[in-house]
Design a protein around this nucleic acid. Structure first.
Lengths: 137, 137
DNA sequence: CTTACTGTAATGATAAACGTTACAGATTGA
DNA sequence: TCAATCTGTAACGTTTATCATTACAGTAAG
């Protein structure tokens, strides 16, 4: 699983816990333990998809653009790592019945698998994640 | 997704299509487009789990040990890439509420996700895969 | 006893993931 | 207007994971 996905969840959770206030990539990166540039890259994606807003310059940073309960983990998965489940087959032998057709068969199966995973991830909105974090305290 | 998983499926499908006959790692590797040693490594795993038998020496190779319909994709997933779904979090900041607890929360969620995926993969026995390959011809 | 296999360790090459530097553009406040 | 503080992104370097390859011991057949 792509770590962009978990970084997205982590960042948004942090934003959720300080509603109305901007968080800088430095602050978020310190919490997540990665480089600020990676945070900006991931949040740049989230911004393009309308989940957050950003502001440059002094006092700038990132802030939620929509309601917590409107974002679920499947949304984030789709943005950050769609296709991760899809197995990367090496180029197999087209002369062989198995080699020639395995790729297509697996592709179909894993498309279904990802959709199935989606049904599970849709059940978790960021609100649920935030609640779970709060429970851990 | 780990390619060991697809190699396992590929190899077993090939074995399934020539029941009663041994297949060498060379033949399988040619079909799958990878190095024979990789095939032997993956099949070594499958052997340890009782799905196939192997025989060394002239005329040796690999052959099914159980019935096609007794092996499903979840079995193979568990052997070859259990935990793949689990996101690798970088070590986050323990001083931060989010950093300190995110790992545990995500772990729980993804454990559920993998189980959910399992329910889907259990629906595909190797027999189904073989049938799909045959349909493609 | 040679040939044809599996089994596995060890090493090397390639690719993906990630960190880091660098700098342009935006905004604020002095 | 100028310095300080942010985002946004490209470019480059480093580390890690994946995979190929070599090497060789062990086993079975003829």
């Amino acid at each position: 699983m792509n770590s962009d996905f978990t970084l997205a969840i982590h960042s948004l959770t942090l934003l959720a816990l300080q509603p109305g206030r901007m968080a800088t990539s430095d602050v978020i990166s310190e919490s997540a333990g990665v480089h600020p540039v990676r945070i900006r890259k991931v949040l740049s994606l989230l911004k393009r998809n309308g989940f957050i807003k950003s502001k440059e310059g002094t006092g700038g940073g990132f802030i939620f653009a929509i309601d917590l309960s409107e974002v679920n983990l499947w949304d984030l998965y789709k943005i950050t790592c769609k296709g991760t489940l899809q197995p990367k087959c090496p180029e197999s032998n087209e002369q062989c019945i198995v080699g020639a057709n395995m790729h297509k068969v697996l592709f179909t199966i894993f498309l279904g698998a990802e959709e199935h995973l989606g049904e599970f991830l849709k059940e978790y909105s960021l609100k649920e994640v935030v609640d779970l974090i709060n429970q851990e305290r």
